[in-house]
Write a protein that binds this DNA or RNA. Sequence first.
RNA 1: GGUCCCAUCGUCUAGCGGUUAGGACACCGGCCUUUCACGUCGGUAACAGGGGUUCAAGUCCCCUUGGGAUCACCA
Length: 463
Amino acid sequence: MSEIRLRFAPSPTGFLHIGGARTALFNWLLARKEKGKFILRIEDTDVARSTKESVDAILEGMTWLGLDWDEGPFYQSDNFPLYREYVEKLLAAGKAYKCYCTPEELDRKRELAISEGRKPKYDGACRDLKEERPGAPFVVRFRAPLEGTTAFDDLIKGRISFQNEELDDLIIQRTDGTPTYNFTVVIDDVSMGITTVIRGDDHVNNTPRQILLYEALGCPVPEFAHVPMILGADKSRLSKRHGATSVMAYRDMGFLPEAMVNYLVRLGWSHGDEEIFTLDELIDKFTIEAVGRSAGVFNPDKLLWLNAHYIKTGDPERLAGLLLPFLPERGVDVTGGPDLTAVVRTLQDRSRTMLEMADGTVFYYTSDFEYDEKSVTKFLTPAGRELCAEVAARLEKADDLSHDAVAAIFEGMCADRGVKLKDVAQPIRFALTGGAPSPAIYDVIGVLGREESVRRIRRALSL
RNA sequence: GGUCCCAUCGUCUAGCGGUUAGGACACCGGCCUUUCACGUCGGUAACAGGGGUUCAAGUCCCCUUGGGAUCACCA
């Protein structure tokens, strides 16, 4: 069997959004699984709406998710001569014809049809025109069959069929000579040798027209797989009012790409009871047939849970690197402070996003924070002060600040003084962190180091 | 409105004729505990409705209802 060739073909009119990313992911996974090719094509025939910024944003999003492409990016705007050639070919074969109807005329007919309760499809006024009208502006329409049915076996949805009479003669070339979408996709998918088209659900209605075009061109029809839409909590199409829809916005909100990939793939696809998948596992286990047929609601809570999981189990060093961009805006400067990787280790279990983790780093790198007055009286009671002073003294003599060693110091003190751990840990936590929820206090001391820990305790005691 | 698609806990889903309808997120309890978390144990919660087919239907068929997509010289 020949190599499978798939493509992701976004139009560069905005950033890479959640839905597009999932479509790209499914294409990529199948390509990797079947050892085929994954091709990136930019659909920028709408010159007015397409921007370079959007192209960059889409590539950035793909790269962030780890979806690399084997060929491209190709730009449809580079293929205009090719499309023109095919239009001529169809025209010469009588499979397309020139239509001189003006947009105004068409609008009028459409309105009329709707008001009379008829289908608003092209009436075929120019379909059988005997002669050309030199100099007159025209569009080129595809001569679609009037009867019969066009059907295909969707890899996800099963057999879908349409009555040809429902389809009208679509415009393949505009008055200005530029080609239209339904035509360019077909030409490109043919010329790029695409064997399988995985795309959004919103394209099912375009599929029969495209199949007819393949047939008119005498080209093999690819397989189709239409992936269901992603909806917001109110079951309407996912949009800004449901929250961020840009993939990169999630990076900026402190999400890890592996969490996003894992979430996206599980939205509409499953493998038994499994929830957590690495990219490699996905390549191994993914099948397009297992993708569900119904639309799914985007659930930020579950994404958050996955993100927490990947932060918890992630490599601290890598996380430290990813954390860096979030620190300046919090006034955190790691130079001269505790080792960031060590800091990350204490925060992994309690951070659901890198943003939360970044917040958690602040006290480590702020040695002159303010102590809240109310809390001072709450934690630094006479007894608390006494205990803190002794901890400082014992810490000063300690040469090992490993978790176990610090634990031994605290436990030893509790035994000597006959107090509960809580009685000493809480005042110390307050002295070291300013009272914020913090990682385990033994670890905080270990990360802060002896000098800084003692200094902070003495400073609190001086209040 | 026409056409097309879809329908299991609130959400993502398992189920592919015979199950106490399973898992996950969220939620609610217990435990753990130096704060906050993590973790752990347990709990609430679903086959949209109606007809068939069958010894047997969440699973197959039809209808109803509900939801979504699409009907451009946009992609």
